[in-house]
Design a protein around this nucleic acid. Structure first.
Length: 308
RNA sequence: CGCGGGGUAGAGCAGUUGGUAGCUCGUCGGGCUCAUAACCCGGAGGUCGUUGGUUCAAGUCCUUCCCCCGCAA
């Protein structure tokens, strides 16, 4: 089938790979190169790089809704359009180009977690289960009819990065099956129950500020959900300290949330999280590299200090 | 040249107004103990990122370059 893939970051790489191997006639539409890194070098989207390796033609648009974008799509004349973490809204004009319309791969169990960062929010909110949904793209934000859905359990210590990797692979699988059913005429549509819908926005750095009075589980969930980006943090002596990894303990609270109740290079770093102690396994101080807490403790006396 | 922080023993950090380097852990040897993430004694280990300079003397001041980290994008 002739398919236009609209995608940008590495979430879509397994999908790109799958479509390529399945032998579809592909063209990739993605975002323009953008400044990234310390030097602000112009960096191409991950999908563009990968497509280049496969020899798949790539077009880049600031707005696929623009006349230029629409014209480029029409020129390719796809039978199907696929979006996966594209990062742009589509117009009616875009959607009407392929006869099969557009299928979106979304990393949540719709109608829950419509929006930008479903994987991270699912973890931050302490969800035990999430998944991937393929849906018929409509104008609303992730509101179209559900085509296929697959669930996965979220591990108690799983990070957003780890779940991201699993769901991006799963996304490719689900899309593969969705396309096969489409070709066999075996695809069914299910309307979303808007009453059950929840929305999530983009993750901002401020969301990572840890409130140690929130309890062990909520802090742990936040740390997992913000890993690897942008990483949860707390203020110590007026400076932001990143908390990369934590571990639940059964030790009782000392009644002073944020306080380093135990800070020993051999035993580890234990912080009061309101309803008990949470062990900090990996930490990163300003200007320093990320390291395990016991190592960091060798040169920094944290006992008695308080994270705010 | 976007802004800022940093490169000191295997690891993490200190090193004040410039005067040939300390701490914690690890490591090696010995001791104590029923035992230990415990304790005691002793030892090894550093051309202080790199280049050039100032000085009687530089980890500590100035300079070149390299690398790491954060912010901003």
């Amino acid at each position: 089938m002739r398919i236009a893939l609209l995608a940008t970051p590495d979430f879509a790489l397994p999908t790109l790979d799958m479509l390529f191997r399945a032998g579809h006639e592909l063209r990739v539409f993605t975002q323009p190169d953008k400044p990234a890194g310390r030097q602000g070098e112009l960096t191409p989207p991950a999908v563009k790089v990968a497509a280049g390796k496969y020899g798949i033609p790539v077009r880049q648009f600031e707005k696929i809704r623009s006349p230029e974008g629409v014209a480029a799509l029409k020129e390719f004349a796809p039978e199907l359009m696929v979006t996966a973490a594209f990062g742009q809204l589509l117009s009616r004009e875009n959607l009407d180009i392929p006869k099969h319309g557009c299928i979106n791969v979304h990393a949540s169990l719709l109608p829950k977690y419509r929006g930008a960062a479903p994987i991270q929010w699912a973890i931050i909110n302490g969800e035990r289960v999430t998944g991937v949904t393929t849906m018929q793209t409509e104008l609303g934000l992730d509101t179209g009819d559900i085509l296929l859905m697959r669930e996965v359990e979220i591990g108690p210590d799983e990070t957003a990065g780890e779940l991201f990797a699993r769901l991006s692979a799963l996304g490719a699988e689900v899309l593969k099956e969705t396309i096969e059913r489409l070709q066999n005429g075996a695809l069914t549509r299910t309307k979303q129950d808007d009453a059950l819908a929840t929305k999530c926005g983009m993750i901002k750095k401020e969301h990572g500020h840890i409130d140690f009075s929130a309890g062990r589980q909520r802090v742990h969930d936040l740390v997992r959900g913000m890993n690897p980006w942008p990483c949860a943090y707390a203020m110590l002596d007026g400076e932001p300290v990143k908390i990369w990894k934590t571990k639940w303990t059964d030790e009782p609270s000392a009644g002073e949330p944020g306080k380093c109740v135990l800070a020993d290079a051999k035993r580890g770093l234990f912080v009061d999280a309101g309803d008990g102690l949470l062990e900090i396994l990996e930490i990163q101080f300003p200007g320093a590299k990320r390291m395990d807490a016991k190592t960091a403790l060798l040169g920094r006396p944290l006992l008695g200090k308080t994270f705010r």
